[in-house]
Design a protein around this nucleic acid. Structure first.
Lengths: 224, 224
DNA sequence: CTTGCACGTTAGGAACCCGTCAAGATCGAG
DNA sequence: CTCGATCTTGACGGGTTCCTAACGTGCAAG
């Protein structure tokens, strides 16, 4: 069964969550602050993290960011009802889902199942094909019409994000923060330039893209 | 069977409701003021609360607000016909639905069933389907008759709020504040414009909407 | 019937976003 | 140091979205 790391400073809630998840057959590691969370996560063997944003020692968003530096384990964030901004920040930093307090145990369990299901399915499809090009994620190669296409590191990073989330809309902030880092969230210029380059290299008709799509005002989407 | 807390200061009505609901098999806790309501609710084991806004000791809106601090049990508000403002306030504070006095027992029972059903249904499906359209919240995609429908950021934001609270009535203030920000709470014009656009894009017959419903004077509701 | 109110509908200009291009700036290899 | 590749930055035109105000409609009260 899956191993879950719970990071929550309220002892009552931490205990309740631990008991409930153990009762469902999960293996649970409860910790009460961000530092311990990073240590335990660093030790590996964790399939999912449940993280309260309101921690005593660190900003929860920083915890997510630190994790994302070397790990892609799914993170579900817990946040107070009024902490809208922190929630958004955590998602941008790479959290997978969020639950607003107060929440029902059923809802949390459902989101845990969903998150675990997601990682199961995404890891075993390293080659993505479309009508006009092919991307091999494990070999880091892209092909078009049988010829290999050379991509720069930045181009590759951006393409990988899009292709790993087929059909899903990725916001500009999400993309910018993942590719360029947290402080570049407003440099939408970069996105325009690099999306144009990817299209020029991969799309048959770059001015009418069929797979690397723009959703005005919202972000970009890869259509398989 | 479900446990219902009734908060009502008129003894006659309290008694009538209690008898009626018990006859339907619900377990009922009748109380006559706000303070007792919070105590009983705090003890837990309550699946739904029916709350009269005209209480002797506390403003009903404050009761809702206090509840929402630590609990997300559904709340149905009872209000006199002329207490329009209080009703809206209660919805903004987090109430789920309202019934105007005088009301029929059938109507109240129907709303009770709806509210209980809502919490039962495991909320893990980020894909919402109706007879005429489909909304995928995680991919940020909307479909109608198999075709994708393009929504602008504002349209999407509004639709997402409605769809994430199926069956629940969202007041105009709630919607305006969430989508446009706290200072736009009175610009009801925006809502009319954007609701019309959503209906035009999603409803088969926009002038007779079946899923994006108006509650005159109160707000809007998404009916699955 | 008149009046007032809330909602639906429409349209146009302002503000914003995106694709494109090209010229520096930076970096690493030889 | 020189050179090429890559990344950053700024500017512009065209398209989309948003805001705003006006008008139309249905309903209920007087």
């Amino acid at each position: 069964m899956s191993r879950i790391l719970i990071v929550e400073d309220e002892p009552q809630l931490l205990r309740a969550l631990t008991i409930n998840l153990r009762a469902r057959g999960y293996e649970v590691k409860p910790v009460a602050d961000g530092r311990s969370a990073l240590v335990v996560a660093g030790a590996g063997e964790i399939d999912l993290i449940i993280l309260d944003l309101g921690l005593p020692d660190m900003d929860g968003v920083d915890v997510v960011r630190a994790l994302r530096g070397w790990n892609n384990v799914p993170v579900i964030v817990l946040s107070a009802r009024d902490a809208q901004a922190a929630k958004v920040g955590a998602l941008d930093a790479g959290a997978d889902d969020y639950v607003t307090k107060p929440f029902g145990m059923d809802e949390l369990l459902a989101r845990i199942r969903a998150a675990l299901r997601r990682t199961d399915s995404t890891n075993d499809a390293p080659i993505v094909r479309t009508a006009s090009f092919t991307v091999d994620l494990s070999a880091k190669r892209a092909e078009r019409d049988g010829h290999e296409v050379r991509l720069t590191p930045t181009e590759w990073h951006l393409l990988e994000l899009l292709v790993r989330n087929p059909g899903k809309l990725l916001s500009q902030q999400q993309l910018l923060q993942q590719v360029w880092g947290p402080s570049y969230a407003t440099e939408t210029n970069y996105l325009r330039v690099y999306m144009a380059q990817l299209r020029r290299k991969l799309e048959p008709n770059p001015s009418q893209p069929q797979h690397l799509l723009t959703e005005p005002g919202m972000g970009y989407r890869f259509a398989p």
